[in-house]
Design a protein around this nucleic acid. Sequence first.
DNA 1: GTTGTATTTCTACAAGCCGTAGAACATCTG
DNA 2: CAGATGTTCTACGGCTTGTAGAAATACAAC
Lengths: 127, 127
Amino acid sequence: MATLGELERAVMDLLWEHDEAITANALRDLLSQRPAGSGRDGTDTKELAVTTVLTVLSRLEKKGLVERERNIRPHRYRAVTSRADHTAELMLEVLGSAPDREAVLARFIGTVSDGEAATLRKLLGRD
Amino acid sequence: MATLGELERAVMDLLWEHDEAITANALRDLLSQRPAGSGRDGTDTKELAVTTVLTVLSRLEKKGLVERERNIRPHRYRAVTSRADHTAELMLEVLGSAPDREAVLARFIGTVSDGEAATLRKLLGRD
DNA sequence: GTTGTATTTCTACAAGCCGTAGAACATCTG
DNA sequence: CAGATGTTCTACGGCTTGTAGAAATACAAC
């Protein structure tokens, strides 16, 4: 229940960037304005069908990542949680109930940048 | 390139528990001795075919998670990295190149247990 | 070296997920 | 009510995973 497809992720990214709930049409437009593939040049506008976007949104809704306003006519969609929350949740899910959580955390910490390590220290408080 | 299936994960778990490289047959036996489904009772021994285990091992090898000794006849398989390393890597992958890494870390830290927070402080050094 | 047996690789298929979208249905606006 | 606009149903192709039989390969003993 964790991994998203490429398009699903693209949609979530857009929703996360938008505070206000937006329509499927608006999303389709935004999607067409971004480099879909990993290609270098940015002229790569795919122009998806609106139904495609709607399908993806429905699936994301079923997954609990998106909710929509059904009262107004062109439904408006928004992300349920912030990206930071979502990502943190995913990380916890990965860390999971491993019997060696501390070992994992050790490896993890060892890879974080210095600046971030400092941030972490601050967040943890010096006890 | 990150998520494993249920059987794949079961195999990896066994390999991670074993320091020594083991054969597909041994793995099949070990697999049959564990509660496959989430069912309550433990009498749930599925008894897989060896070819099934071999297929899974090949796929895991292709994914770079497993390597095998080909010189001896019943090939022996072992995990390439420790579970802790693997998990930490996954966590980093999830954290990824988010533009809000620090925010994510903040949420993450907020959810870790007190004991683990202490461990983290220790790991980070009190600078 | 020929035969038999253990092992590995090939090939295959069903189920599920994701990208993609047309067809059909529903809902406003006049 | 008719037309336009928006939403849901249905569908399909591709890819991954669980599952395993068939075919090829390697080794042991004669």
